[in-house]
Simulated assay, not measured.
Amino acid sequence: MSIPGRLVAVLASATALAGLCGCTVQPPDAEGKHGLPVHIRLPSSRGPGPARPPSDPPAASAPAASSVPPSASSVPPSAPAPRVLWSRGDSGPGVRELQARLRQVDWLFDGPTGSYDDLTERAVSGFQGKRGLPRTGRTDMVTWQRLLAMTRPPGKWELYLMGGQPADAPDPRCLTGRVLCISKTTRTLRWMVDGRTVSTVAVRFGTESTPTREGVFHVYWKSRHHVSTLYHSPMPYAMFFSGGQAVHYSYDFAARGYAGGSHGCVNVRDEAAIARLFDEVGVGDKVVVHW
């Protein structure tokens, strides 16, 4: 084949290849020195990527993990508040033990009375604050467990330091007539009429050096505003039953409880109760002091 004929064949082949690849062929004026096109674009060895419409917005980047708020289901529930055992206004043996234990650690100086009053509330609040607990003044399970770990079980007299101990069964000698039935075991005085208990009060007795006599006596004298001629101490609502020994109100018993003692008399710390008793008991009524 002549040179012009071969040139025509080459150009025909290039034109066919360009049609298959979508490329363009430069016009004849851009030929090389051999008359071949110099800007033939060949297809890439990599396949074309997926097409994206020009109008699509750029994909938004995902927010950082720390900026995503946790869902309600993923937040752990807060610990429940400890159960409250006793609070102001409550009463009973549990409160009495609480007060006795607070006395052991010097957070309470009155009582025990068995009633959760303002003094008990302040003592509990102080105990809580000292140990880093919420100062609620209410005795919850956490506060109670901490107090138990620091104290010992209170004894009988610690629980009833200010009186209030349940009375025992009345002495058989108290079951007839009008009787002041006085128990040294439970430190209580029952006012009884024909075997029925009308009222009960806490009492205190004489010390070891001046003990209260035991036995059956009778009220022989009453003195509402009595003052002891021997000790020069007031003895309001005195009801004498054996020599100089009497049932009467005691300011010292009201203030100090069983930390003190009498010179043989039967002390009452509840002034309102002894005032009523003074009006009801008559000269000649029986007095029984027993264990």
Rank of each mutant, 00 (worst) to 15 (best):
R173V: 08
S125H: 03
V10Y: 09
A9H: 06
D171V: 05
Q165K: 12
M150C: 03
I182V: 15
V227N: 10
R101P: 13
P69C: 06
S115D: 09
Y237H: 09
V266N: 01
Q128I: 03
I3C: 00
P63K: 11
L102H: 03
K286S: 12
Q104C: 13
G163E: 03
E214T: 15
R96F: 02
M239F: 13
W191P: 01
C181K: 00
V198A: 11
S115R: 10
V95F: 05
G49E: 11
V75T: 12
G257S: 07
P134H: 00
Y249A: 00
R204W: 04
S61F: 07
Q145L: 14
S223E: 10
T186R: 07
A255C: 01
T207G: 07
P153N: 14
V287S: 04
Y116S: 03
C181M: 01
T207A: 08
T113L: 03
H232D: 09
A273C: 07
R46A: 13
M235Y: 08
T15I: 09
R204E: 15
F278K: 03
A51V: 15
V287I: 09
R138V: 08
R41G: 08
V266W: 01
D118R: 13
A18V: 14
I40L: 15
V281Y: 08
Q165L: 03
V281N: 05
T15V: 09
G163C: 08
R88D: 05
K286R: 14
L98E: 07
F240S: 06
K222C: 10
A51E: 14
Q128F: 06
E158G: 10
T151S: 10
F127K: 04
L98D: 07
G261I: 00
A100I: 06
G282S: 12
G244A: 12
R187S: 14
D118H: 08
A169T: 15
S199N: 11
T207N: 02
T120R: 01
S183R: 01
D171W: 00
T210A: 09
I274F: 01
W86F: 15
H39C: 09
L98N: 07
Q145V: 14
K156Y: 08
A202W: 00
E208T: 01
I3W: 02
K184E: 15
P4C: 04
R224V: 13
F278T: 02
T185R: 12
V68T: 15
H232V: 04
G206P: 02
T207E: 01
L148G: 03
D194T: 12
T207R: 07
F109M: 03
T210P: 00
H34T: 04
T188P: 00
V266T: 06
H290Y: 15
A202F: 01
A259D: 09
G111I: 00
T176P: 04
P43F: 11
G243A: 12
S183T: 05
P28Y: 10
D90V: 10
D56K: 11
